[in-house]
Design a protein around this nucleic acid. Sequence first.
RNA 1: GCGUCGGUGGCGGAGUGGUCAAUCGCACCUGACUGUAAAUCAGGCGCCCUAUGGGCUACGGAGGUUCAAAUCCUCCCCGGCGCA
Length: 395
Amino acid sequence: MKFDITKKLTGANARAGTIATPHGEIQTPAFVVVGTKGTVKAITAEQIRNLKIQVVLGNTYHLYLEPGEDIVSRAGGIGSFMDWGGPTMTDSGGFQAFSLGVAFGSSVSKVATGEELLEDEIITSERLAKVTEDGVEFKSHKDGSKHLFTPERSMEIQWKLGADIIFAFDECTSPTASYEYQQEALARTERWASRCLDRHNQLDTEHVQALFGVVQGGRFQDLREAAARTMATLPFDGYGIGGSFTKADIGTAVGWVNAILPQDKPRHLLGIGEPGDLFSAVEAGCDLFDCIAPTRLGRHGTLYTKNGTINITGAQYKQDFSPMDDGCTCYTCTHHTRAYLCHLFRAEEMLAATLASIHNLHFIVRLVERMREAIIDGTFAHFKESFLKNYYAVY
RNA sequence: GCGUCGGUGGCGGAGUGGUCAAUCGCACCUGACUGUAAAUCAGGCGCCCUAUGGGCUACGGAGGUUCAAAUCCUCCCCGGCGCA
């Protein structure tokens, strides 16, 4: 993997660049589309290509559970398996320490509202993941079987999954965790980072796979900065910025980290993808983002428009024969109406998920692409202002 | 015509003297979703109000019994089934 910066925005940290991978280039900033189980839900590989998606992210935990990394390996790796010839990434399974752990069965999400209870105050009925020094013990969400992920195991699985860029195994902490816990988890994630590097170097002797370290530290500036300093000293090919933030603090928190991380390596803000957050992150110097929002929201009937999201299942769209978003050039908008999508959702037709996902992916991928263009031609600030003004306008 | 079973909120269908504006499912309305446990989840769903409370109208129709009726009785209307 190679990363070149084409242009840096003056007076801000935003930059445009190119990541070269064995399966092609990624023009950054870029939105990484999530394909957890080796499929971008409801979307075919051909549609992925038509959407000009640059890179797809699979998940180690899910692909390990099914079909198993050996099958993916025999298929020629995750990209080949799903007939996606372009660049791929895999997440390490670290996020599941959170989603199947403290967050399981609760309403806690990785972006905090600032009103969360501390973890100690939350009554959780069951958890499927438990963190130890060695790694994370999972109970499969599918059949309850027990599994242990260690940093070494995550590297081994990801090596077999064969993505171009992989992540170090980390612990994604909850926004409800105390400072003490964040500190403890961070120290553990840093120990795991070294173990990941060691194991990955043994497996990938020719270094065909890039390995990104993950910066944690929760919402605390000193922890985030310490984490960035530590990770910066380790020979990673790039960095993921993970964990939880208060929504309003995404930009500043990422700013603390990016001020310390090496300039010449890509930074991937893990799991962030609302339009406003993407602007903040790009401005703060992030190059890559992945988020399930476009596909999940799409499947649930929420569509992006330049004036904010709409719930297409609503009664007011039953007879609305306009496109999802006026002026949108995606397949869905150029072929179908809101009334049609509204009908498909109400009738629970599968095509609804596909058409909605296509629209939302187009919207977000194109949005980040426009941010890149705006960085290159120096109009980023103007673009940001005009976009957000429409998107978050209150009527 | 006789007998019998039944008529409950948009629909299906509980309840069978008080704690019933009425379980539940569907439909409908609204909301949530940020490294996918998610084609998922949550809330609302008779009318009105000075709404973590109060009032009104309701369980085919009309009467009646009772402190109290969707629930019991009488008659009527409507439907299913059986026999003529």
